[in-house]
Amino acid sequence: MNRRVLLIEDEPNILEAIRFLLTREGWQVETHSDGTDAVEVVRQAGPDLVILDMMLPGRSGMDILRDLRGIDALARLPVLMLTARGQSRDRDMAEKAGVSRFMTKPFSNAEVLTAVRDLLAQATRT
């Protein structure tokens, strides 16, 4: 089954790198690079997984995550959060907000692929 991943990231080069990796693995990748309407985009796209950058223009990834968890249909949507800020506080806050996986930039490509694979597998099992 062709899984759909929504990638929300404002940095074009990172966006391109992740898209290349996931596409090569056979996933369907959609992208978005603004925080303001991110929640609405997720809702309409209905992806199997969301990769969410923490620092987005317009709205922070943390707020977006909280909103997603507040929506019944999206409460259990796997969300992989990326951050370039190296603060442990952010991880705590994200976990409290209900993140599925938290990853600090820069990451290895293998890490990202493993994380996405795991999250999708969990989602399928449940």
């Binding site: 080069n13 790198a17 290349f20 370039a84 800020r85 190296g86 600090t104 930039k105 820069p106």
Partner: peptide, 18 residues
Amino acid sequence: VSHELRTPMTSVRAFSEI
């Protein structure tokens, strides 16, 4: 600073691995 450093480094790492 961390953010500004990690962001280009992420791209560099990702593409060099690719």
